[in-house]
Amino acid sequence: MNQVPVIELQGICTSFRGFAVHQDLSLQVHAGQIVGLLGGSGSGKTTLLREILGLHRPDAGLVRLFGVDLNDPDVELQRQLRRRLGMLFQHGALFSALSVFDNIAFPLRELHCLDEDWIRRLVHLKLAMVGLGNGHGKLMPAELSGGMVKRVALARALALEPELLLLDEPTAGLDPDRSQNFVELIGDLQRELGLTVVMVTHDLNTLAGLASHVAVLADHRILAFGTRDEIMTVDHPFVTGFFGADRRKLL
């Protein structure tokens, strides 16, 4: 699996109403890496994530996932590609009209290949994976607490056992204890399933607990990409400012 990079971005340019967000941005993520995407507010982290998902088309540049161009016109190929990635939205984006069980079962049912018994077993497995019990399946998303919404959303993102998992602020809005649990949960899953993970986060603890690699997004491009230790030594006002006093804690 070391030949084709999981994510390959080349020369991405994006602008909103003449205001440039990305200029000639390039990034390569390989299988098994956990990449933390850092950047100031408004530096285009979420936009970049949306571009990787194909929800937003950059003005120029190339996005390849698993070596497949996202602009490829082959609809079936695009569908297969989407099955290989899972996304955890910042606010969960659970289907509010479906129960927790049906939310997780939804992507499985959409395959139209699995029987109900199979789907039930898989949903229970996923629920157990994110530390939720059988009884939670009947609840509606509106009845869940913030942390549970994130867990269910993660279970749904993992329903198809994707090779690539994208996380947008996975621990934002959780208390430190829960966010530590969540970090451990994602870390365990990554080891078990051999996922490639890209996450946007502001939280240093999440970054320290999870990321194997760090990409710094500043000045409209990827300023630095490397392992955590390498990034520590980068001398740039944003990086030094961001890590600041916490640099010791991370190491």
Partner: peptide, 20 residues
């Protein structure tokens, strides 16, 4: 051993999965 773990987790599920 890694794959055995995956199957072991499935084995821990109750045998009967009654439909809701």
């Amino acid at each position: 051993p890694l794959h055995r773990q995956v199957i072991a987790r499935v084995a821990e599920l109750p045998q009967e999965m009654p439909p809701p």
